[in-house]
């Protein structure tokens, strides 16, 4: 699905990390943890082509990202559901339209998909907020809406950056269970988080691989969690 081979990334010449190698196999579940500023978000951005590696090779669905033009990246993103830390939305559109945005831009917004949308909003507990504008939503609601948007195209890979950062524990559990359920359906999931409780909770639900970025390198973790 997604493969990183000896990847390095630098911001303005300052190396953030180097020599990272990882394979996200189909149906795998990964947690990515590490201190703030260690490069978790950058790592995820490299995985969906938002950033290009300074060195090494990133391939997405068997295609080297370096060889992909912007349209190819766009098509790849339709197979990767991304939940961003800062949950960006189109503030002038109601929540339901924001969640359905991937359908709109891919020309799949049809009557059949409306049921899918309704079901997804129900699942993340946002049916009552369907007509609200994003600025009217709380942080947790925005995060749930971002997750719903990432899932609406039924992507092969789900990359979530702190998806439970602004929600209460109960909702965190619910979102985690949803991601685990999707993983059991064959989706590849990677969650970047520093919420160790969430990782511990996941251990009983799914055989997840836990990775840690620290000091510019990627290490396996988990035994200490």
């Amino acid at each position: 699905m997604i493969e990183l081979d000896n990847v390095a990334y630098s911001y303005s010449g300052a190396a953030l990390f180097s020599g990272l190698s990882l394979q996200l196999a189909p149906g795998s579940f990964h947690f990515l943890t590490g201190p703030s500023g260690s490069g978790k978000t950058t790592f995820l951005k490299l995985c969906y082509g938002a950033l290009r590696a300074t060195e090494g090779r990133v391939s997405v669905f068997d295609t080297d990202v370096a060889d992909m033009d912007r349209d190819a990246v766009a098509f790849a993103r339709r197979r990767i559901g991304v939940v961003h830390q800062d949950c960006q939305f189109l503030d002038h559109l109601p929540l339901a339209e924001n969640v359905a945005l991937p359908l709109t831009v891919t020309g799949q917004a049809s009557v059949d998909q409306v049921d899918n949308l309704r079901e997804l909003l129900t699942w993340v507990g946002l049916t009552a907020k369907a007509d609200a504008l994003p600025p009217e939503l709380s942080g947790g609601e925005r995060q749930r809406a971002a997750l719903a948007r990432a899932l609406i195209l039924s992507p092969d890979v789900i990359l979530a950056d702190e998806p439970t950062g602004n929600v209460d524990w109960e909702m965190s559990q619910r979102l985690l269970r949803l991601l685990v359920e999707l993983n059991k359906m064959g989706k590849t999931v990677m969650i970047a988080t520093h919420d160790l409780m969430l990782i511990r909770a996941a251990k009983s639900l799914v055989p997840a691989r836990i990775l840690r970025i620290a000091g510019g390198t990627l290490q396996s973790a988990g035994a200490d969690l």
Binding site: A74, Q88, P102, L153
Partner: peptide, 16 residues
């Protein structure tokens, strides 16, 4: 620019 970033995030092509 923010709108464009969101559209790209959800898979919109430059043409769209």
């Amino acid at each position: 620019a923010q709108v464009i970033a969101v559209l790209r995030l959800v898979g919109a092509t430059d043409g769209y």
